[in-house]
Design a protein around this nucleic acid. Structure first.
Lengths: 173, 173
DNA sequence: TATTGTTATACTCTATAACTATA
DNA sequence: TATAGTTATAGAGTATAACAATA
């Protein structure tokens, strides 16, 4: 004899769940965001965090972060580049970059060798493993970029890049 | 009798410093960014971090972070809002939001009171100190937004907000 | 003295897991 | 059982300070 309340969600439970979902959506629709949506700073943060979250999901099993992809790409285009140059580009403290370099080196993706001309420097380079990894994660990046193109009309990608670039430069010191 | 090397930088030292500055700028100009500048994800991160850094500088003495400003604004427009609603909006774990709420409450900017109808909920509200603080930091936000308008042509703000919004929604799950 | 880089330490933001209280 | 919230803990990512090596 079945009990009045079955552990298997029946039609009633299912309906309740859908109703709860609607109620939540309704709650969110009623929320007043004030002036926030009109702030570029706010929309920038929302977009950046959505994109970052999505990419992190895709990259999870590679163990490479979006920031590390930038570093690997810079090393590919500029073999032998110095840490100090990268700190200037990304406005990072040299201690911060030193840790990233150490982590990438430990995983065998990059090597740092002493500069012959000036022994204070270390020349950073991709290993062949690093090059392979970069190729792999670049595919993820570019598939994400194509997903963005799906919500952009022709010409809008270029306009967005230009606008973002001008905002960056307005606050670069 | 003055030593050969004076601790006050003379014209020679000044020239050397300028030359070093030029050399650095030259180094940076020669860097190959590869495909990075063509990625929306990359430009988004650069812009967001430049804007965030600038705002953090302005807000330093208030002790309020950009994320906390969003929360305070939401509480102003939606007095009595529940934590759980905010976690859905900002895709944050309830534990993360609990810590933010605790920190703001400790500083006397918000209060959380038990909901009479359903005791599981806590209704969040601004205190008068919170309202005053929000007014103060909103001035910083809006002055930063005006600085952005300086690099935007008429109509571009609206277009940028729309583009960012579409990117956010493309990756919201 | 100035520059490059490393290490120790700490702070912020975030998540996961285990928990309590309530429905 | 499900939901709201808290606490403990841990992992990124970042900065500051002190240091060593080199110029």
């Amino acid at each position: 004899m079945p009990s009045k309340r079955t552990p298997i969600p029946g039609p009633t439970a299912k309906k309740a769940k859908i109703a709860a979902g609607r109620r939540k959506a309704q709650d969110l629709a009623e929320v007043d965001f004030g002036k926030l949506p009109g702030y570029i700073g706010y929309q920038l943060r929302q977009a950046q965090s959505a994109v970052f979250r999505d990419l992190a999901r895709t990259l999870r099993e590679t163990g490479v972060t979006p920031g590390e992809i930038s570093l690997l790409t810079m090393l590919k285009g500029n073999p032998g580049i110095k840490s100090i140059t990268l700190t200037r580009i990304y406005q990072l403290d040299k201690a911060t970059l030193s840790l990233s370099v150490k982590a990438l080196a430990k995983r065998g993706l990059i090597v740092s060798t002493r500069d012959a001309a000036d022994n204070r420097y270390r020349a950073l380079e991709l290993t062949s493993e690093g090059r392979a990894m970069l190729q792999r994660v670049t595919r993820s990046i570019e598939s994400q970029e194509r997903a963005m193109d799906d919500v952009l009309k022709p010409g809008e990608r270029g306009r967005l890049l230009d606008l973002l670039n001008r905002i960056s430069r307005a606050f670069a010191r």
